[in-house]
Amino acid sequence: MKRSALVLLTLIASTFCFAQKGKPLFTYPLGVQSYTYRASFPNSVVATLDTIKALGITEMEGPNPKNISPEEFKKLLDERNIKMPSIGLDYNLVVGNPQGAVRLAKVFGSEYVMVAWIPHGKTFTIDDAKKAVTDFNAAGKVLKENGITLCYHNHGYEFGPYENGTLFDYIAENTNPQYVSFEMDMLWAFHGGADPAKLLYKYKSRWKLMHLKDIRKGVANDLTGGTPIKNDVALGTGQINVPEVLKAAKAVGIKHYFIEDESPDHAAQIPVTIKYLKSL
């Protein structure tokens, strides 16, 4: 073989090996939280769903917007091959009428019902946490008996100190793992002072779902469970170490990921988020 040909083959082989080393970190279906499009759905459900499909999104965390029935919304989702593995419902609805939550989840073929907010006063207290534990265990049992998993979605205020840990630790350690699981919201965990990756590893068997979101640089952490919506930024442009969190999420077995961008600039930011996820 001529030297020039040998050099060329060596170069091709080394290039191929280099390309093979870079395995993608994010390999799951792209999902979105329907709340992201809360301002668009009232104008046109069909046009909004077409926009979502055009982005390559194949999963949504619902339920349906207020201006369309669950059955009709499910039909529109099916037409666009968008699945709804999880629905987010109000605490009082799930606790007061768990069978109603089951019925709605069944309409969408959802495996999970998510609760994102525990009612409380100005400050989230141990009494609030204790009540939530009792309520979640009871409602979660009913859901599990009907093939649905209840997930509590952290919101930042639960990371206030309690004994040797936090109020979130109290909830995680006192809810029954058979009946209660969790959805990780990266932004709210971080904003509440927790380390999202470490929290995933700490309760690794409990996490089933994730909200993909990032918070603007320079925003200080607090326990309010709130921040102006303009502080939601495209993934990878804020404060959170996204690759570290995604590695932890993959390690603990999370399979459903939903982009949630509450910003008024979400239409411009979501393509940036998707491009970033695919680049990892």
Rank of each mutant, 00 (worst) to 15 (best):
S4G: 02
A5W: 12
A5T: 14
V7H: 10
V7M: 13
L9D: 07
T10Y: 11
T10E: 11
T10G: 15
I12P: 07
A13V: 13
A13N: 12
T15C: 13
F18V: 14
K21A: 14
F26G: 06
Y28R: 15
Y28V: 01
P29G: 05
G31R: 01
G31D: 06
Y37Q: 03
R38K: 14
N43F: 10
N43E: 13
S44W: 11
A47Q: 15
L49P: 02
I52F: 00
A54V: 10
T58F: 10
E61K: 11
I68P: 08
P70C: 02
F73L: 07
L76G: 08
L76S: 11
R80N: 05
N81E: 13
S86D: 13
S86F: 04
I87V: 13
L93D: 14
V95M: 07
G96R: 04
G96A: 03
Q99I: 12
A101Q: 09
V102G: 07
R103M: 12
R103A: 15
K106P: 05
V107W: 03
V107Y: 06
G109L: 03
S110L: 01
S110P: 00
Y112E: 01
Y112C: 02
A116R: 09
G121F: 11
T125S: 15
D128W: 10
A132Y: 03
A132D: 04
V133Y: 01
T134V: 14
A138I: 11
K141F: 09
K141G: 05
E145V: 11
N146I: 03
G147M: 03
G147V: 06
Y152R: 00
H153E: 09
E158Q: 08
N164Q: 14
L167P: 02
Y170H: 06
E173L: 14
E173F: 11
T175H: 08
T175L: 06
N176I: 09
P177M: 11
V180E: 08
S181P: 00
F182L: 09
F182P: 02
D185H: 04
D185A: 03
M186H: 08
G192L: 03
G192Q: 06
D195R: 05
A197Y: 02
K198V: 10
L199P: 02
K202A: 12
K202Y: 04
S205C: 00
R206H: 09
H211W: 03
L212H: 04
D214W: 00
I215H: 05
V219I: 15
N221Q: 14
N221F: 05
N221V: 13
G225R: 02
G226R: 13
D232N: 13
G236C: 01
N241D: 15
N241L: 01
P243W: 05
K247L: 07
A248S: 03
A251F: 03
V252W: 04
V252H: 03
G253F: 06
I254T: 06
K255P: 03
K255V: 04
F258K: 02
F258W: 04
D265K: 15
H266S: 09
H266F: 15
A267S: 10
Y276Q: 07
Y276N: 07
S279L: 09
